[in-house]
Every structure is written in C-alpha cells, then in structure tokens.
Design a protein around this nucleic acid. Structure first.
Lengths: 220, 220
DNA sequence: TAAAAAAGTTAAAGTAGTTGAAGAAATTAC
DNA sequence: GTAATTTCTTCAACTACTTTAACTTTTTTA
C-alpha cells in the first residue's frame, strides 16, 4: 500500500497493482529501483541482473487504474515516475484516500497481494506514470535467490508502519485544521500535484470544509 | 507498537519498552515465544537456545510503565501474559490510545527502538503482565545468527501494517457508532478487560459519547 | 469494610465539521 | 478554441460529537 508515505521522501511503503505482464521484454531502466535497493543493501551484478529479469515495466495514463476493488492485486509496483492514489469507496459512495504514491515509492494492496484475495481498494494514476511491477511468484523467488532483499522489504515496511502509526495518532488527536497544516508541512510538493478534493479525502474531511480551512489559514 | 492488533489473535505487531535487564538469569519459559516463531519459521534446538539466551524476562504490575515518553525505547517486548496499552498525550493533556497488546503479541515503540531517539509514547500495564524483552543489540545479533528471523519479523510487521491500514480507513469512513460496533466485533474479549475510558480513547471519542453510544446500541 | 478515588451515566448547551445549493474558476474534450 | 464537465468557493442550515457538570456505580486503598 502507499499510504501516508507522501513526501516522506526516503522511504515508501509497499503495495502493488494487478496487471497483465508486458509481452515484449523491452530494455528497461531499473536504475532507480536498484539505487533504491542499494540504499539499504549491497547487490552484486548477478543479483542486479536477476532483479531486472523479474520486474516488468508498465506505463499508465492519467486516470488509468492499476487496481479495481474486488480484483486480486497480482503485483507490487515500484513507481518510476508519476503519481498514484489508493482509495476505498464507502457504503454511501464516498471515496477515502489511503495513500498517494509518487516516484521512488511502492504501491499496491499488500493484503490482497499476500493472500490472493479480492482487494477493497482502487488504485488509479493521477498522472501519466511509469512503474516496475513484480508478481508474488517472482517476489517469492527473489526472496529465495537474494535473501538480503528480505531485509530491504522488512526495512521498507517498518518505515511505512511507523508513518501509518503517526497518521493514526494525528487522526485521533488533531483537528482538521491541524492535520491540514501538518500535511502541507510534510508533503509540500503534493499541493501542486494533487487536487484539493483528493487531499480532503486523505485528511478525512469534505472538500467544502477544506476550502474553508484554506481561506482561514491563508488570512495569516 | 501494539495498536489495532487487539484481538487479531494470530498476529501481533512490534514494539517494545525500556527497562533494566534483569539481574539474576532465571530459568524462563519462552515456550510461547518459540511457538510463535515456529508458526512462521522452523528453528533448530541450537537456535532455540540462542533465542533463550538473548531474551530476558520481566514482570510488570498493573499500572507499571514499560516506557514513558521522552525515554528511549530500548527493547521490544513479547507479551507472555497480561495486557499493555500504548498511548500518547496531546497538548491539552488528553490521552490517545494507539494499541492494546495482550498475550502473544509484541509491544514497544518501534521508531524509538530503531532510531534510539526519545519516544512520544507511554506504555503501561493494564494488568499484571509477564513479558520477554530483547534489546536492539541482541535483536541485531539474532538477525545475523538466525537470518530466518528476518522473515518472521517481516511477516509480523506486514500483518501489523495491514491491520493499521484498515484502522485508518475505518477512521476516515465510519461514524463513531460504526467504529464501536466494529471494535466489539473484532475484539470481543477486550470489552471485559479494558475500561471504557480507554476504549473511547482508542476509538477517538470521549468517554461520555461512548457511554451514549452504548446506551443507544444496547436498546436493540 | 469503610472511605476515597476513579470510572461510568445522564442531560443540556456548545462547536467542529457536514450537507445542499448556487455560482465562479479551472480542466477536459471535441 | 469553445462547450461541457469537473473542481473550487461561499453561505446557511444542520448534525455528530464535545464540554461541563452533577450524580451513581465500581474499584482501590488501607
């Protein structure tokens, strides 16, 4: 999943989307992904080659879905460029944003990916995006062949876990105004990239109320 | 941290408390902990012995603190018996409960444990409790000596992560009444063990409002 | 086992955030 | 490049939840 990682710059989380594996094995630039792994573990050239062979690249156009609810999330995706939003739809048809995920982060629905059960989430591209995807089968293989990656993913999810925890405490203890101010402080770049409607659904308020908060806050 | 693991029966999370290592190395019954590890990975008798040597046992009386805010969380703790609550205190002095942790779960403040920075949380025993603690140094050693445990902890935190994610979505999308009903469904045993005041602080409402909800709900 | 303290209940008044509706601004689509 | 659609803003009426306060019940202490 992507979650509150927005703007945590260094460390994303973990999730994935479903998709058909790309047919033509085109040469892909996984430099960014390898760099990312390399922040936590050291890889040999053989290992890098294996990694390259187990990920497949995919492009998503703005508004295209990586995952729709009730589908099984077949891959975890590393985001190369672009921005994706994970959200659920409640019984009244309202959307609630779990995460925004941008370059150098992961996205997907971890629960669905692990259990191979239908997902409750939708993942949609907010911008044209390039991602690298790995299936559960290939990831399991990778854990066996490159056990060091077990460490990378443990660290990745540990960070994501801590970030989520902070979000829970914020939601319990702060007003909407405080949460909005914390959001723009933590993820300033998102203000330019993401619509207020979506930010409101991440903060747990209506777009109308967010607009009122912005007016209030901007007066000073 | 313990968190929304309440009642997820099989899989806890991860956190710890600070403490002085117990002086006399008493024989300890780590059967429960070993069983727990064994659900996910297979251990040799040598490995089991090593594990026994790296954990230390501690007893906490009801109301005793495992961690106080601003302290560094020096250990992660596996709970043998009892119940602990992790909470933060906001600027107005209100408490917000992040997690309840009971038998077979882990507790601690993962961020503080990992970074060795002061914690924002308090962890207190709600009942007399028995725990097994491990320091960062010993856990790092364990990862080296028994790399399989890297896997156990990855799975542990993955589960915790997914549970947290569900809590975030619930907080965004449900009313207090819905959250209360979901809580008693997910963690029925907690109703007998944990005060309403603390449940309210977990749900993000006041004790007064929880009392009103209970009255309303009990009418049918 | 009695006194003190803490937790839970009830009710009335207050407030943070929602709803609905209408217009303005920005974005999308042809 | 203009019409259609979506997003954002503003306002007034509304509601879910909080606050305060007084009372009752349960738990703790000694």
């Amino acid at each position: 999943m992507k979650e509150q990682r927005p703007a945590n710059s260094t460390d994303p989380l973990l999730v994935s989307g479903n998709l058909k594996i790309q047919a033509p094995k085109q040469l892909m630039d996984s430099t960014k992904l390898i760099n990312h792994f390399s922040k936590h573990i050291k890889l040999t050239t053989d290992e890098i080659e294996l990694i390259n062979s187990l990920f497949s690249q995919r492009s998503l156009k703005k508004r295209e879905f990586l995952l729709k609810s009730n589908q099984i999330c077949r891959t975890e995706s590393f985001i190369f460029s672009g921005c994706l939003r994970t959200y659920s739809i409640d019984e009244n048809g309202f959307e609630h944003t779990l995460t925004f995920a941008v370059e150098d982060w992961w996205t997907g629905d971890l629960l669905s990916f692990l259990t191979e059960m239908p997902s409750f989430y939708n993942i949609v591209a907010l911008e044209n995006s390039e991602i690298l995807q790995i299936t559960k089968m290939n990831l399991d293989k990778l854990y066996v062949e490159v056990p060091k990656l077990e460490r990378y993913f443990r660290l990745l999810i540990q960070n994501a876990y801590v970030t989520q925890q902070q979000r829970i405490i914020q939601n319990l203890s702060q007003t909407a105004e405080q949460r909005y101010l914390a959001f723009i402080e933590k993820y300033p770049a998102f203000l330019q990239r993401i619509s207020q409607k979506h930010i409101a659904s991440y903060l747990g308020i209506t777009p109308v109320f967010l607009s009122m908060l912005r007016k209030k806050v901007s007066r000073w």
